[in-house]
Every structure is written in structure tokens, then in C-alpha cells.
Amino acid sequence: MGTATDEVIQRLYEAPPDGFVAARTAAIEQARKAGDRATAKRLAALKKPTVAAWVVNLLALRRPELVEELAGLATALRDAQRGLDGEALRELTAQRRQVVSALVSAAGKLARAEEPGIKLPLAEVEATLTAAMAEPEIAAQVRTGRLIRAATYAGFGEVPRPRLRLVTDAPDEAEEEGDDAEVIELPQPSARERAADERRRREREQRKRELRRRLGSAQAAERRADEQLEKAENAERDAGHVVEDLDAELAELERRRTEAQAEVARRKQARRDAERAAAAARREVGDVQAALEDLEGDEPD
């Protein structure tokens, strides 16, 4: 039974890739607020899947029985290869194509239901499922539902070929002279055929070296890109925290501004009241002075 964190991770890899970073950031923040640093660190290490990887993840998470069917067919195909069963190989190879095609179709339906109108790289999905049939390690990765990129496989390898021999009609001589007299090897390839085979071998080796070189460069570029992505995500989170802090400061400043405006209004009203009181006092002083002058004027000399 999966943990709560496993369920969160499953939801991340089931959702369309466009929202992966935002959803992961929200999950990390939730874990941090809960004081669960281990979960936050685990979530921060998750990588955003490509669209093709997401489609395969949907298939593995929503229809795991189809992925298991694919794995069972892969086992049967490898057994047929080891047993040099040509008829079974032909039948299983045809079946493989049908099963992979059906799984690609099922995965496409799941993805379109989740994200209508999305452009799906179904060729990469097919290549990944084909690779899962050839490589148990890739199959195991597919089963997790947490692929981050599509996989490829050049082919299902070469089936070991038996050494062809022609049995003679001289059993007595075979008993006397041993196995070398019992069989006759088929004619050796001509010099031209050997040269062609050698040329093809050299070309394959050169191609392998070139592909390994490209793989090394691609892996190095991937590591650099992942590092840059991680730095960008960390910077994004830090910037988000700064914005949150500034929002909090702005809210506090706005509260203080509102209080200050109210205080200004109160002080203005107090000033007006004081002005009216002062005016009334001045009028009273004038009236009293005038009355006093009148009285003093009416007194006899």
C-alpha cells in the first residue's frame, strides 16, 4: 500500500506536464509547512516528464494490466529467441506489433481524455513500449509510472545461429575417424563476402562509437540542463517567497495607511471644531467689549 507521498507523486505524474512544476512547488510548500523536510526534499528531486513519457505513465498508472500483458509477451518472445523457435518467433513478433499498437491507441485515448486537443508524440510512445519489451530494466521503469523521458531500442538483438553441417553417408568412417569425418561444414564465404562482412562490421563499430560519443554528450547536456532547471526552480521559489514577504509588507503598510488617513480625518475635524470655538470666543469678546464701552459712555462726567 502506497504512502501519502506516493499518492502525491502519482498525481503529479498523472497530470499533464504543463502543470507539473507548479503542482510540485505547491506540494513542496505544503510539506515544508507541515514540517516534513524529508518529503519536501523527495518531491524537489522529481523531474518533469516529457509529453511522451507522461502518456506512457498514464497507461502504466491507469491500465497496469495492459503493461503486464506486454511484459508477458516480452518474456515469451525472449524464450522463443533462446530456443531458436522460428515459428514461435514469427507468431510472437506479429503479436508484438499488434499489442504495441493497441497499447499506443489506449494510451492516446487516456491522454486525450485528460488533456483534450493535446498533440501527442505517439511514435515516441510506441518506441518506449517496444523498448520495454526488449529490456526488462526499461519495462520495470515503465511499470513505476514515473518515466521522465521516452526510451528507444534499436532492435531485439540477433538470435544465435546454429552451426550448419551436412551429415555424410559413411557412418563406419565416422566411427573410425571421429566427429570431423561425421560432418562436413558448408562452404566458407568468398573473399568478397568476407570483405563485405568486415566492412559492415567496421561500419557498425564506427556507428557504435559515434552513438556512444553522442550519448555521452547528450547525457552531459542533460545533466547541465537538469542543474539549470533545478537552479531556476530554486530561484523561482525564492522569488515567490520574496513576493509573499512583500505582499505581507504591503498589506501591513496599507493597514497603517488606512489608520493614518482616519487619524488625519479626526485631526481635521478637531481643527475645524477648534476654529469654530475660537471664532465664537472672539465674537463673545467683541460683544462684551462693545457692551462695556456702551456702559462706560452712559456714565455722567
Rank of each mutant, 00 (worst) to 15 (best):
T5F: 01
D6M: 07
E7S: 10
E7A: 09
V8A: 09
Q10C: 14
L12Y: 00
E14C: 09
A15G: 08
A15Q: 11
D18S: 11
G19Y: 00
V21Q: 03
A22F: 02
T25V: 04
T25Y: 00
A27G: 01
A27Y: 00
I28K: 04
Q30R: 12
A34C: 01
D36E: 01
D36T: 02
R37G: 01
L43Y: 02
T50I: 12
V51S: 09
V51K: 09
A52S: 15
L59I: 14
E68Q: 12
A71G: 07
T75K: 10
L77G: 00
A80W: 05
G83R: 13
G86P: 00
T93A: 08
R96I: 10
R97N: 05
L103M: 15
L110D: 00
A111R: 03
R112N: 07
E115C: 13
K119T: 13
K119Q: 14
A123N: 07
V125N: 03
A127D: 03
T128R: 01
M133N: 01
A134P: 00
R146A: 13
L147Y: 05
Y153L: 10
Y153M: 13
G155H: 08
G157V: 10
E158R: 03
R161C: 01
R163D: 08
R163W: 05
L164K: 09
L164I: 15
L166W: 04
A170E: 13
P171H: 07
A174I: 12
G178Y: 06
G178V: 15
D180W: 05
L186P: 00
P189H: 03
A196E: 11
A196W: 05
E203F: 05
R204A: 15
E205W: 03
R207G: 12
K208C: 02
R209D: 13
R209F: 01
R212Y: 04
G216I: 01
A218C: 01
E222Y: 02
D226I: 06
E227W: 04
L229C: 05
E233W: 06
N234M: 06
A235D: 15
D238K: 08
V242T: 13
V243D: 07
L246S: 06
D247K: 04
A248K: 07
E252M: 11
R256D: 14
A260N: 08
V264K: 09
A265M: 14
A265K: 05
R267V: 14
K268S: 14
A270C: 05
A270Q: 10
R271T: 12
R272S: 15
A274I: 07
A277K: 05
A280G: 11
A280Y: 04
A281G: 06
R283A: 15
V285D: 14
V285Q: 11
G286T: 13
G286D: 15
Q289K: 11
E296K: 04
D298T: 08
D301R: 08
D301N: 04
